[in-house]
Design a protein around this nucleic acid. Structure first.
Length: 575
DNA sequence: GCCGTTTTCGGCCCGACTGTTTTCAGTCG
């Protein structure tokens, strides 16, 4: 079940979307969007707030507070239900298709009776859109491509939502009497960027109470199937969960089997066969006679195959078994290795929290250094000015003594222009402690131009970090077309770090590209790109991507001490 | 609908891109 704030966020966002689709006042819709975001990121639980308390949330006024209070009291918002009655839910879902906004969704519904993404795809294939005002020859093609993009990740759940769900499930099932072990496995344990379903494994003498506990959870929408060893449900958020219960003595073999990946397991099984053994989810057995060798722990299973334990994030058959055989497994970077965050925002631009709130939260995370990197002026909508930036720097300097162990760095997130230039001239850039530079526009340049602009950004002596290099948004927007190897070579040559952006919507660079970049000798940062205090915890997801890219703490500059990082940030002095 | 060293009305993140137009609407960041 999502946090109550998240439920309210979703309802307010739905209300805003429906206002947009029905052609209501755009500013009113925007006000609800803003309120939705503010509630979602509000650190306190809204459950304990009354209408007055709700109005303390910035962006929530009288009208929104009343609606939320009504929801908290009755579970319903009549104003929302009225709008829902006018517009089928599929019409709103169509606006999730890249290229389809509220106006087009309404036109498609009103003029062609289309009420779902599936019907939309069908109508395009049947050439029913031509002739509709505002839709030309290329529209259908573009929308179909958008639907394709949506479906590629459609049915898959982002890492943060899946992790939160899995942690709740494990907590609930661990509390069931008779449950001796419980953990999540599958691609979530390997920390893939999206997961198709959530696999939970548990041990108990009697599986029935665990199966019953799962099916009775309040957020179960459907029981897909239930037997003595396996139960599958679907949550009200549409995520499938498979629970498997095994005897405690088989825990290790089952955990290996259900963690995967399939390719990793096939390789393990092949190794077993060569040793006269057979590996399954029930254990490692001798082929002759069928005696069980081991199955109680993962350590034992790997050891019996002549291997050290292999971290789940490496189990993709990308050379980890060979490395393990040669005793060359990397010592993977851990979240606890991170000493700071070098890419964060405040409400000076598009963040939700104040500078002080962000700094306090960073201090509570135990960091030794922390950079504020609000947007630079070329991202016009953020309305940055030199004066605002300098005033923030002053404010940050005044906070310097607030947390004794936390060094505050003043930075910015620059915009890499189409030609590779950035927002400010060298003399202004020199005033920052750290500069992240990212692509925020011109996503459709050809490969040569994209490559050129990124290399030029690396060559800028004031650019320390390239942020979210490919600019992809999972399930929403593909990566830009760029020669990554050429950019990695430039980053390595110029001493420019490449970011592993930890936002679950981005996770950019992707794991396999991290691996490639590492081979070029690139250094990395693992940053939150936080726009709210709660998002400062995002590096837990970026760490997964970094581990899947085989990174060690040595590869990641924000695990370094300040003394060492300071040297790295003096890039201009090194050349 | 929200908000105020623009303060109770009148603004509100602005501009580029795309495909459709022939002067612009819709979408997006």
């Amino acid at each position: 079940m999502p946090r109550l704030n998240d439920q309210v966020r979703e309802l307010l966002q739905e209300y805003a979307d429906l206002i947009n689709i029905t052609g209501g006042d755009a500013f009113r819709a925007r006000a609800y969007e803003k309120a939705a975001r503010a509630v979602g990121e509000y650190p306190e639980d809204v459950a304990g707030l009354d209408a007055k308390g709700l109005q303390q949330i910035p962006g929530v006024g009288k009208s929104t507070a009343e609606k939320v209070a009504e929801f908290l009291a009755t579970g319903r918002i009549p104003a929302l239900e009225e709008l829902r009655a006018k517009i089928p839910s599929g019409v709103r879902e169509m606006t999730a298709v890249p290229g389809v906004g509220p106006k087009r969704a309404l036109a498609l519904h009103r003029d062609l009776g289309i009420s779902s993404v599936d019907e939309l795809a069908e109508a395009i294939r049947a050439d029913k859109l031509s002739g509709l005002a505002g839709f030309g020859e290329r529209s259908g093609e573009k929308i179909l491509h958008g639907i394709e993009l949506l479906r590629q990740s459609g049915g898959r759940t982002l890492l943060d939502a899946a992790t939160e769900l899995a942690e709740q499930l494990v907590a609930a099932l661990s509390a069931v009497p008779g449950c001796t072990r419980c953990a999540y496995a599958g691609s979530l344990r390997r920390m893939r960027e999206t997961v198709g379903d959530v696999d939970v494994l548990a041990t108990a003498e009697d599986s029935a109470p665990l199966m019953a506990a799962l099916t009775e959870l309040p957020y179960v929408a459907e029981v897909i199937g239930s037997g003595p060893t396996k139960t599958s449900i679907r949550t009200d958020q549409g995520v499938q969960v498979d629970l498997r219960v095994v005897p405690e003595e088989d825990w290790g073999a089952a955990l290996v089997y259900f963690t995967g990946s399939k390719a990793h397991n096939i390789k393990l099984r092949t190794m077993a066969v060569r040793a006269g053994l057979k590996l399954s989810e029930y254990g490692l057995f001798e082929v002759d006679g069928g005696a069980k060798v081991v199955s109680a722990t993962e350590d034992e299973v790997y050891a019996a195959l002549g291997l050290p334990w292999i971290p789940p994030t490496l189990r993709e058959d990308r050379g980890e078994i060979e490395a393990a055989l040669n005793d060359e497994l990397p010592v993977l970077v851990q979240e606890s290795d991170l000493r700071g965050d070098l890419h964060t925002h405040t409400d000076l631009t598009d963040g939700l929290a104040t500078l002080t709130e962000m700094v306090d939260t960073a201090a509570a995370r135990g960091y030794s250094y922390y950079a504020v990197t609000d947007h630079a002026p070329d991202l016009v909508m953020q309305r940055m000015t030199d004066e605002k930036m300098l005033a923030q720097r002053e404010q940050l300097r005044e906070l310097a003594g607030r947390h004794k162990k936390l060094r505050l760095l003043h930075g910015t997130e620059l915009n890499i222009g189409p030609d590779g230039g950035v927002d400010w001239p060298p003399e202004f850039l020199a005033g920052f402690d750290v500069c992240v530079a990212s692509v925020h526009s011109h996503f459709n340049l050809d490969r040569a131009a994209q490559t050129r602009r990124l290399i030029r950004a690396c060559e800028n002596p004031y650019v320390h970090v390239i942020g979210h290099l490919t600019t992809r948004r999972i399930g929403r927007r593909g990566p830009i077309d760029v020669d990554l190897d050429a950019v990695f070579a430039a980053a390595a040559r110029t001493g420019t770090a490449i970011e592993v952006n930890s936002s679950p919507q981005r996770l950019d660079l992707r794991d396999e590209d991290v691996l490639r970049a590492k081979r070029h000798g690139v250094r990395f940062t693992i940053d939150s790109d936080a726009h709210a205090t709660g998002q400062l915890a995002y590096p837990r997801y970026g760490i997964g991507t970094a581990q899947r890219g085989w990174l060690t703490a040595e590869d990641v500059v924000n695990t370094w001490t300040w003394q060492r990082l300071k040297h790295f940030l003096r890039k201009d002095a090194l050349h």
